[in-house]
Design a protein around this nucleic acid. Structure first.
Lengths: 211, 211
DNA sequence: TTACTCATGTAAGTAGTTACATGATTCC
DNA sequence: GGAATCATGTAACTACTTACATGAGTAA
């Protein structure tokens, strides 16, 4: 249901084609990424329901391009969705699920999983920080277009709510990294305990220390 | 695809009926909750594929009850899934999406959303801590059953990986609460700035101070 | 002319939700 | 006798993914 929220949101900032919207979701669609297949279908559906309308622009000589715009009803719908208390959906986390059964695999595999976790969220933080920078300095064209048609005294709120939303993702990513690092320590401790006293264990520990 | 991982996981600890499994997912299925409709279908499918098999127990005089067990192939599949690097799916977050457009609603609504966010994650932490306690003190029957048929020197790892997986959810919940609290401060600042200098604003501030 | 980006769609399949449906057992 | 719980399913629908399909414009 929330792809709709995302679509209403971007169109409330700027009229846009399906193609552009999908591109936006790709590069800055934290919160609600979507494939072009889904975007085009949702746009047609929302058009039928009267939330958005398209102005058809020519593309070359034969083809066409549809630029979507919010209708009055679309504006109302966005406001309604923003007013309503958020219904928290059940959370699923495959990584954690996998982590539950790590005792079935060698310690080194556990470590690799955790290192991958750290890389994943480090990369996410980089993207997010670039994005936050673009918002705070009002470089994002979507943001600028939104500011243009909203009252001046709302500009601060618009910018800062967006920054704070992105900050949530950063905070989450940082928590994930910290957790994975504690996880690496845990694996180390478990391995040490397991190999304690055995000749092979002593050797591994020597190698590790000398590396 | 990961409901399968969850099913293999619980069955690797203890044979179970679809009904019991759904109950487990309901009360302790952090990571991968599922409805009974989905569980029964997935069990039938996995049975056809040879990962699990059912022993049919009578239920009263007429009805039947199917207790599922992992097959050799099921065990291998679980290990394989645990070995494979985790493919991070696109993350969607409706709450953050809603938060992006909070400038469309009154400050008080923004505050309500954030307070609900805090309550939501506080409750989650309570559940998780109860669960973690049950694991560390080895009270969970699923855990105990798993420990019984795994080698003694793996017991620590089994317990601690599980605790650490739950700790991830707690850490995440704490990050969410901290973020929402910073959000409440932000709303406060924005409102102050907005109403600064206006008579209405001064009145609101007076009321707030005297309350 | 070839490769790339712009641009829009459909089809088939998987995953998950909600509602509908049935019947046994157990406890009050 | 009635309510709660145990127990298993199906049907319809929504959301999302992956693959297939087509064609225009542009720059090397």
């Amino acid at each position: 249901m929330s792809l709709r929220h995302a679509v209403l949101g971007v169109l409330s900032s700027m009229p846009m084609s399906g193609y552009d919207m999908q591109r936006y979701f790709d590069e800055a669609g934290y919160f609600w990424p979507a494939s072009h297949a889904q975007v085009y279908q949702e746009l047609r559906k929302m058009e039928r329901e009267g939330f958005i309308e398209a102005t058809v622009a020519p593309r070359g000589t034969k083809a066409e391009k549809r630029i979507y715009n919010l209708t009055e009803s679309g504006h109302r719908e966005l406001q309604l969705m923003t007013l309503q208390p958020y219904a928290y959906p059940p959370e699923r986390d495959g990584m954690r699920l996998q982590f539950m059964y790590l005792d079935l695999v060698p310690f080194e595999v556990a470590r690799e999983h955790l290192r991958a976790h750290i890389s994943h969220y480090r990369l996410a933080i980089q993207h997010l920080q670039g994005r936050m920078d673009g918002i705070t300095h009002r470089r994002s064209s979507l943001l600028r277009s939104r500011l243009e048609h909203r009252p001046e005294d709302a500009h601060d709120a618009i910018v800062e709510y967006r920054v704070h939303a992105l900050a949530a993702h950063v905070a989450r990513a940082e928590a994930e990294i910290a957790w994975a690092e504690r996880g690496l320590d845990l694996v180390e401790r478990l391995e040490e305990r397991r190999t304690a006293g055995t000749a092979a264990g002593a050797k591994v520990r020597r190698l590790r220390r000398d590396r």
